[in-house]
């Protein structure tokens, strides 16, 4: 399990735009660099990030991004969404070598 840090407000007003920031520990090896033995290191990147907002009703995809080798290590992804109702935000990172990680954060909307 990679270390992930997610920053978002614990509480928000209904209809408020909230900013969410996610950081995850990942080497994002490009697949173009030679290693110490001169051989090209195999690519190892996160290919997709998505965030689902489950507000009790539907489990809606509110943000997603495709990542490419040009993205730096330990990618920071920052985005905004509208706080609709109390619920859970589910963050998923998927990538090479079967990398898959899911984190959940609760938000309370008044």
């Amino acid at each position: 399990m990679a270390r992930a840090l997610i920053t978002l407000p614990r509480t928000a007003k209904r209809g408020e735009v909230i900013e969410i920031r996610t950081l995850i520990a990942h080497p994002m090896e490009t697949g173009y660099r030679p290693g110490e033995d001169g051989r090209v290191l195999p690519r190892d990147i996160i290919r997709r990030f998505s965030c689902h907002y489950d507000d009790g009703g539907i489990d809606e995809l509110v943000f997603s991004a495709d990542l490419f080798p040009a993205v730096a290590a330990n990618p920071l992804i920052s985005f905004c969404t509208v706080a609709t109702a109390s619920g859970t935000l589910r963050f998923t990172w998927e990538g090479d070598n079967g990398f898959s990680q899911t984190e959940r954060m609760a938000i309370s909307v008044t």
């Binding site: 270390r3 840090l5 920031r21 950081l23 995850i24 520990a25 290590a73 330990n74 920071l76």
Partner: peptide, 12 residues
């Protein structure tokens, strides 16, 4: 701290 990638190491 929400932008600083070094915090990943601090948490570890």
């Amino acid at each position: 701290d929400a932008l600083n990638p070094a915090m990943l190491w601090v948490k570890d």
